[in-house]
Computed example of a mutant assay.
Amino acid sequence: MPVPLPDDASVLLLPPDAAEVACVARGVISAVAPRGGLTGLQQTLLAAMFHSLTGFDIDPLAVQAELADKPYGARDLAEDLHRRNAAFRGRIVQTMVTAELVLDPLPPEVAGRVAEFAAELSVHDDLEDVLLGHADSGRRLAAIDFDRNGYLHDFDVHHTQQLHVGDGALTGPWTPVEDDPALAARWASLGELPAGTLGRGVYDFYKTRGFAFPGSPGSAPPLLAQHDWVHILADYGTRVESEIEIFAFIARANDDLHAFSLLAMVVSLFETGALAAGAGLFQADRGHLSQPGMAVRFGDALRRAALCAGSNDFMATDWFAVADKPVAVLRQELLLPPKSEEAVTAGSVGPWDAGGISPFQLNAGRKLAEAEGREYAGPAVE
C-alpha cells in the first residue's frame, strides 16, 4: 500500500537534514545496487549528486555495507519520507533512475526495485515502465518511448510559437526545418545585437562552430536548437561531456518532473548507448559520463539548476523575447549561481574556453569563417 502524500498542514518543506539524507541514501542504494554491489560509476555518481544537492557527503560503499546487516526497503523509505510532497519524492525517484540508467545492461531486478520504491512513495512516472519493459531485453531503447512517456508526452505541433517556425513546418517535436528563410533570417539577425547580450552570444556560438541556423539546410531541429541558448546562459561548452551537463541543468531547472526524460535520453545516448539516436540529431556515443570528473560536473549542473529562481522550462522559452538582454542580467534574474570550484577543477568549461569545442566543430567554424572572408575567432580545442 503506497504511503500517501501529506496534506498542507503536515507537509515538510525544509531542506533535508543529515539524518534524512542518510535515509534517502539507504533507500536509493537499496533500490539501484545490482547483484555484486554498486558499480564504480554508480558510486562516484551518487556521491557527487548527494554532495551537490544536499550539502552532505555520503560513502556509498559504507551505506551498502550497512544495508547488508540491516536491509532497508521501499516501505521503510516511504514511511521515513511520509511528510514529503510529490516533488521531493519525485526527485528521489529520479536519483534512483539516474543510477539505474548507467547500468549496462540494466538488470530486471534493479528496474523492478526502482519501480517498487516509486510505487511505495506514491510516485508514478511512465518512464519507469519504459525502463522496466526494456531491462535486460537485449534491445535498445526506442526514442519514441522517451517522447511519449516524458517531457514531450503532450507536445502539440500547433502550439510552438516560441520556435518561430512557419505554419505546417513541424510534424513532430524533432522535425528539422531546413527551408524556412524567415526563420533563418531571424536567427541571423542576432548578429546585429551588442556584444554581451544573449542573442549575440548565440550568434557567435553558431558561427564559431559552423552550425547552420534553424530554417536553413543542414540545421538542427528547432526544438533542439532551444538548448543552444542555455549553453550561453549557463556557460557550458559543446563537447559531449558538456551536453550531459546542459541537459542535467535543463531537466533539474523545470519543476515538471517529465523534463527528466530529456536527461534520461542523453544519459542513454552518451553513457550506455542503450538509445541509438535521439532528439533528431544526436547519435549514441558511449562512455562519456564515466570520464574522470564527470560525476562532479554532473552533480554541479543539477545543483545550479536547483538553485535557480522558480521553475524554468528552457525548452519552451521564447528566447528571442530576451535575446537583447545582457547575459549577466539574465543570470542575476534567475539567481543562477556560478559553477563550483570543484566542477571547474574537474573540467567543466564554457563555450569560449579552451576545450569547450570539439575538433569537428572547430574545423567547421574555421571553414565557415574562410568562406565568409573573415578571421576565425573562437575557442581552442585544448
Rank of each mutant, 00 (worst) to 15 (best):
A9W: 03
Q94T: 09
V11L: 08
R148L: 12
V102R: 06
L170P: 13
L13G: 10
Q64I: 00
G356Y: 09
A68I: 08
D8I: 15
S216F: 12
P337A: 03
A328C: 01
A31M: 03
S311F: 08
D145R: 00
L193T: 02
D318M: 07
A18R: 12
F298Y: 10
R200H: 06
A364D: 06
F155Q: 08
L262V: 13
A346P: 00
T238M: 10
L233W: 00
G278D: 02
E372I: 05
A33W: 00
M265K: 13
A195S: 15
R186W: 03
I58M: 11
T171V: 15
A74N: 03
A328W: 02
L46R: 07
A225Y: 03
F320P: 04
G191F: 06
P181H: 05
L362V: 07
A18F: 01
Q43H: 07
P217E: 09
A371D: 10
A264M: 12
A380I: 11
V230E: 07
T272V: 05
A119M: 08
G168T: 13
A248V: 12
V157D: 07
D76A: 15
L275K: 01
Q162E: 13
Y72I: 07
A111G: 08
R366A: 11
R148G: 09
P181K: 02
P173D: 08
R83W: 15
L46E: 09
P15M: 05
Q332V: 01
M265L: 13
Q94F: 04
T44S: 15
R89W: 02
L13M: 11
V381P: 12
S268T: 07
A279Q: 09
Q226S: 14
S261K: 07
A188P: 00
V202P: 01
V327A: 11
A99Q: 09
A301N: 04
A182F: 12
A47K: 14
A111S: 15
L38E: 05
H227W: 13
R200L: 00
P16F: 12
L46M: 02
L5V: 02
L81N: 06
A74T: 00
E342N: 04
L307I: 04
S122T: 11
A22W: 09
F247N: 03
E192T: 08
P359Q: 01
